[in-house]
Amino acid sequence: MQLHKTLPWLALAAAIAGLLTTVFSLRSAPTLLKQISRRRADLTELQALRQERAGHRSALDLYEQLPTKKAVPLKDLAASAGLPPNPDIRWQDDIPAAEGWVLRAVDVRFESVRLADLARFLKLAQESRPPWRLRECALTAVGSAPGFALASLTMETLEKKAP
């Protein structure tokens, strides 16, 4: 008997609830789907960016794997190459790089060097770790004997400061 009295109200309530939830669902579903779609598109874009940058990171990773993060002084390299041990060295401003590394550039001037020794110096600089790279070079022949020159070089390297 009680069921007979309450059943119509329950049915009505359920029907209204069903109708309301359906209306709500129909109205909100397109928005939600759009939001999900947008997020997935953003995710795809970020994943593509990550993949792209993976190559960039590998260059940094190679430097991180170096046993030493400090470049061999140019004076030492010059001495090893048979060049005058005290070249005129002027440091430029350091430029910060990623992960605590710093790009260091220096102007080096050798008054009178044999080109063959200069070539050896440049090779040693390139083979050192971290390597020294030649950015600019100006040679002017000096003296009467061939193969000697005044060399003005701009060299740069990457170093990591100790924490």
Binding site: L7, P8, L10, A11, L12, A13, A14, A15, I16, A17, G18, L19, T21, T22, F24, S25, S28, A29, L32, L33, I36
Partner: peptide, 23 residues
């Protein structure tokens, strides 16, 4: 009435699940 009740409940449940799934 029982059919309406069942249908209403089912519809509500389906919609709620759908909403929950989307969220």
């Amino acid at each position: 009435l029982a059919s309406c009740l069942a249908a209403g409940i089912l519809l509500s449940v389906i919609n709620l699940f759908w909403q929950a799934f989307l969220h």
